[in-house]
Structure formats: C-alpha cells, structure tokens
Design a protein around this nucleic acid. Sequence first.
DNA 1: ACTTGTTAGTTACATTTTCAACTAATACCC
DNA 2: GGGTATTAGTTGAAAATGTAACTAACAAGT
Lengths: 144, 144
Amino acid sequence: MTKLDRFDLQDFLPYLLNQAAEDASAGFQAFYKERYGMLRTEWRVLFHLGRYGEMTAKEICERARLHKTKVSRAVASLGKRRIVSRRTLENDRRQEMLYLTKQGEIMFKELLNAAQRYDAELATSFSAEEGAVLRRCLKRLAGL
Amino acid sequence: MTKLDRFDLQDFLPYLLNQAAEDASAGFQAFYKERYGMLRTEWRVLFHLGRYGEMTAKEICERARLHKTKVSRAVASLGKRRIVSRRTLENDRRQEMLYLTKQGEIMFKELLNAAQRYDAELATSFSAEEGAVLRRCLKRLAGL
DNA sequence: ACTTGTTAGTTACATTTTCAACTAATACCC
DNA sequence: GGGTATTAGTTGAAAATGTAACTAACAAGT
C-alpha cells in the first residue's frame, strides 16, 4: 500500500492548521489569560466591540462565527466585571445593544497594542510574499 | 489613532488560523464523529498507531503534542471499544506499548482513505504553488 | 384580537477539557 | 540496601463547551 507511505499526518491540512493555530495562539492567549483573566471568547467579544463599535450579541455571533451561548456567557462575564455594558433597544426589546465601558475601552486598547506587536512578531517567520499567500489561503479556507 | 484602522481581526494571524482550522476540520470531524463515534483526540491516537506503528502513550503525547490526560482517556475509550490494545513492557513496567487491534486496523484504513480524499478536496481551493507555500508556512508556525 | 411562527438571548444538563493530585514503577545516590 | 527524586500513566474535581429546551418579545395571517 504505497498510498500509506505518502500520507503523513503533517501533510493533512486540518491537522496542520490546528497545530499551527494552537502554537500561534498560545503566546497571546497566555498573555490575556494571565494578565486580564480573560477567555478566548471574551477577548473576541471585547475586540469586536472595541474595533467595530457597539452591536448586539447576534451581530457578534455572525461576525465572529461564535455560537450564541458562548457569546451570551462571555457578555455576562464581561458585564459582571464592568468591561461591557448593555442597553435594551426601544424599538425591539428582545435585542440589547452592547458596548464597552471606559474601563473596557482601556483594556481593549492595551490588548490591541499587544495583539499588533504579537502579530508583527509572528510575521517575522516568513517573507512578505509568503505572508500574503498564507493570509490569502487562510481566508479562503475560512470562507472569509 | 490610525493604527486602529489598519488592524482588522481577519488580519490577526492567530484568529485567522483558528477560523481556517475550524472550518477546514469541520467536515472531516463530522464524518468520523457521526460515523465512528470518534473524538478528535481518539482519531489522532488511532492515526498515530496506524500510520507509525505501535508506541507508548508518552510517544503519542510528544508526537501529537497532546496532554497525557487526553491521551490516557482516548486510549481508555479506544480500548473499551476493542480498537486499541496494550501490553506492558517487560523491562519497564510503567510503560505500555499500544497497538491497533484487527478491528482498529480496518477502521484506520477506512479513515485514512477518507482523510486523503478530504485533503485532496481541500487542496482544490488553491494552486500547487499556493499549497506549497501554505504548508511550508504552517509547518514553520507549528514548529514542525 | 388570537393563534401560530420566528427571533434574541438565557439557562440547564451532558460532554469534554484542564489542572492538580495521585499510584506504581524505576532511577539515583549516599 | 534505603531514602529521595523522576517518570508513565490514571483519576477526581473544576472549568469550559455543546446541545437542547426554554422565556420573552415581536411578526404575520386570519
């Protein structure tokens, strides 16, 4: 069975992608976890509100491709810590507009800077052309 | 703050990698989950034993970069289902050599074929050159 | 107005993951 | 040989995730 010889686990794209994602995320994840006691979903919610402005939980779900229960719990946790606030929409009282508090804004800016530094550091692993191809392929795979 | 405008979440490599990894894994994951009731760690253990031959849990941990508790539980589950068997080493009775049963071999071969087909399908998303760059970059990021 | 259906978001429960403590076997070293 | 430290692997409790059922508000058709 010659096929078998050719197929290494490191050539299997899902595996390779997961390993790379884990490795690439690990450093930054450790940073916001130990420094801000923040979870990954929480960081994503924070980033969305900080970067794109106030929006509802539903919008975050769609943009970040997160399940609504994950977002719900992240928002609850961020709310408890006064990082995120909410206000019920008057025209549709099912929806709540979410936004960052002052404290949330500060935290966001710090984390944004850290993220940019981290990303720049990662980018040193490959040339500009490689980086461009990489991002292009990843976006295609992620359906972005 | 012009920096802020430049930094989109989809340009943040850890985020992009995670999205791509999730998307790329989803289809295959669904397959082995619903068809074989298999978890991701279990599939990895199965693959390692099937592709690289018998080895100890420790070796699987190192090669697959999995925590020992995850491997321990995956092996326990695969053992219960007679997919994996084990034999204590005589020269060091702490270690156990793990290997696939007949049934495990069959399952591995089926899954291997499915994985190869799946990988080939994913590869149609980009050109040969792109694919080569992608894999090269991912390996570097994953420290492989 | 009233039934039926849909949507935003929460909650409860089962599964999975993580972390720390544990057991059993070996190694080191005096 | 006997104490201490490591190592392979397991187990238990806590945290996180996934899934499904739920509540509350709105929409649409009659």
